[in-house]
Design a protein around this nucleic acid. Structure first.
Lengths: 220, 220
DNA sequence: TTCTCCGCAGATGTCGACAATCGACAATCG
DNA sequence: CGATTGTCGATTGTCGACATCTGCGGAGAA
């Protein structure tokens, strides 16, 4: 039942994702249409479509008559993006507050422990996987389609752009505590608290990531 | 200083906007590439790019191998979109709270009166123009780029899809009162109140618009 | 030497033609 | 007569070629 009724576009998008994850494409790099075309054995038409979608997702920046570049967010933009994500996810979770069963909460707590374990052993890939599942379980209870769409997009963008730093931001204990704190607040079933907690959760991370880029790169 | 350094794409996008505003394109209609191409005397390439952008903006829906259709939001989706807009705009305004001068607030109050006046005289076009300016002035004080991007997109989408109903939603007095209420809350300079007020402002409108579509159309 | 201007790759923008696919109608079979 | 299958027109997906634009680098003059 692998329908995948779709076109080359998705294939190209997936390919660029990979290149980004592998670090073969870095912020500021130009992404050449012809290069991708020969690389994948396609014409430029589907490539262009894929690139346009990536621009819409915020992973690439488009300069008319010049080309597409891997998004290079300034520290301010990084913070903005994380703040916005906290806003969206906080609201989504708060709206779905009554839909979390005790079972869900226990699952979440288990995720916290597993995250700590993986972080301790340096298993970055697993850590990120669980972290993603944690947040997916959180905001996927929302049934606000519009909200989910934006949240997914932003989440995706941040994931691909900053995924590589996640291990260096927090200690294993911090990772556990920060997420357990969220579960705690969730238990209280009070909307404003939940919103606030998730906002701060992402604000912190945004600050940290931004600081990383302040040191390494000069302002634009 | 008509730079317009850009390409046909923006031209096509603008054209489709017009068709939407004029009501020549209605929710559910298919938007044919070849049709637009002959209509504008272009090849399909720039048309496809424009359509893809419109899909990213949420104005069109894309079905692979079938085509692009004017978005037909269900009542639930309409509410979701307005709720999300309230969330975004509420936060943006709350964050920029200290940047509003007394002058700004007075301008806003003047807008309220002008809106009422235009509404009373049935000048729909002017009413919408002022309404747009009102909200622009509100959330453009924010300097969170990411937030502005999403807010603009959503605002644009709702504007084009539901603009035609705006006159029938509220009486002139209601329009004035609802917006004056916002200015009032703004004066108090308390973030939670501001957020709450804007959320409710859009929730109300979302409910009303959704109800309009419940009557006229059957569920999907 | 340094500044300016011109020309040249190399990239994106656009085009017209062809291939693949979908939806609807019509013909065929039970 | 109803359901299934085959066929056809229309629309999207892809392609290769050409047009246009940008930024860079070298030639020439002050």
């Amino acid at each position: 039942m692998v329908i995948n009724k779709s076109t080359y576009k998705d294939y190209v998008v997936a390919h660029v994702y990979e290149r980004l994850q592998k670090g073969e494409l870095n912020p500021g790099d130009q992404v050449l249409e012809s290069h991708l075309a020969t690389e994948l054995g396609l014409s430029r038409a589907p490539i262009r479509e894929a690139l346009q979608q990536l621009v819409a997702d915020g992973l690439l920046t488009y300069k008319p008559q010049v080309g597409n570049f891997v998004a290079a967010l300034s520290p301010k933009e990084i913070i903005d993006a994380y703040v916005t994500r906290g806003l969206l996810e906080g609201f989504a979770v708060a709206e779905a507050l009554e839909h979390y069963t005790e079972e869900d909460l226990e699952d979440l707590e288990e995720y916290c422990l597993r995250m700590e374990k993986h972080a301790r052993r340096g298993k970055q890939k697993e850590l990120i996987e669980i972290g993603t599942e944690f947040h997916q379980l959180l905001f996927n209870k929302s049934n606000n389609i519009q909200l989910i769409e934006y949240t997914q997009r932003l989440s995706h963008k941040l994931h691909l752009l900053f995924y590589k730093h996640w291990a260096s931001l927090y200690t294993p204990e911090e990772i556990r505590d920060r997420h357990q704190e969220l579960v705690c607040v969730l238990r209280k079933k009070e909307r404003p608290l939940v919103e606030q907690a998730l906002r701060e959760h992402y604000n912190e991370t945004g600050q940290k990531v931004a600081r990383l880029y302040e040191e390494n790169e000069e302002g634009e």
